[in-house]
Design a protein around this nucleic acid. Structure first.
Lengths: 154, 154
DNA sequence: CTAAACCTTCCCATCGCTGGAATGTCAACC
DNA sequence: GGTTGACATTCCAGCGATGGGAAGGTTTAG
């Protein structure tokens, strides 16, 4: 099976399949005489595993561990659970970070009348010109850089 | 004032100040004879504005708009509020996306006994081998890539 | 034979930074 | 004057997970 079919069957784009191979997440695919990559059912299965793991937010590094745990029949469920739990903890941290930012932002918005007048507490606060100014400093959260979503349904 | 001092005063790193200049977020700084950038109080003020706006998660593009609104004495508060509200809406969307992923993940974790046995519902689900498999497919959320945080305090 | 539909590799862009290398400048001290 | 150290400059590269596209080779159907 060629890469296009593998992509359709697994739900992972051909681009990403090549990328996963290049970064060592999946082994190098066998090639046909003319250089085309070739995939079997097992490979598709792995790709689907990766897609689902990405869907629950695991990073490439974590997925690599999950894959090796998956392939290791001897591994105790404990190890998997621990990895997943660590990931969940990180996710929760990101969520509360975002929530505190959203909270701060809605405070700001709530205080702005939002009409045709020029006076605006949002800008004033960002400029550090009013009493609420320390309020932002308190939210040191600034350091997440959640990316804009890509529309899968483009 | 040189860039280093400006960085200390504004809380924006020298690297970032140069970056903001290069990307047009701030105007080109005046230079000394030997090429050193020079900043006045007004510039520091702007940098602080940017830092606070980043702290509440505004993107560079949004900040650019905010800056021009800030500098425009004629602008109605309405415009600012609208921009902020749009941003808040996006943030909330990201948050619920993350929350649904976290939710799915904790379900998975909850179903895993996590002891020395090999049987593990987490891996089984990722592999698509059990009844909960569609459960993941339902969470099409996968597409946020919130970045790992950077430690500011280092 | 030709056209379409594949495939290949390679490079570029995203976003908001951080790090480093190579080099130049300035101020203080001996 | 010379040296040292703390500055400054530019440029280049990388992070993470993708998408886009160019330039070219392959395969398959008509």
């Amino acid at each position: 099976m060629n890469i296009g079919q593998a992509a359709r069957d697994s739900g992972v784009s051909a681009k990403m399949i090549r990328y996963y191979e290049a970064t060592g997440l999946i082994p190098k695919a066998a090639r046909s005489y003319s250089g085309y990559r070739h995939y079997d059912e097992r490979a598709i299965h792995t790709l689907r595993f990766i897609r689902r793991a990405r869907a629950v937010g695991f990073s490439a590094v974590q997925i690599k561990k999950l894959l090796s745990l998956w392939q290791d029949r001897q591994r105790p469920a404990r190890e998997v659970k621990q990895l997943a739990a660590e990931h969940l903890t990180e996710m929760k941290a990101r969520i509360s970070e975002l929530e505190s930012i959203a909270q701060a932002l809605s405070q700001l918005i709530a205080h702005c009348h939002g009409d045709e007048r020029q006076e605006c507490p949002i800008l004033d606060t960002l400029a550090g010109e009013n009493s609420t100014k320390e309020f932002l400093e308190a939210h040191g959260a600034s350091h997440m850089h959640a990316r804009a979503r890509r529309s899968r349904t483009k």
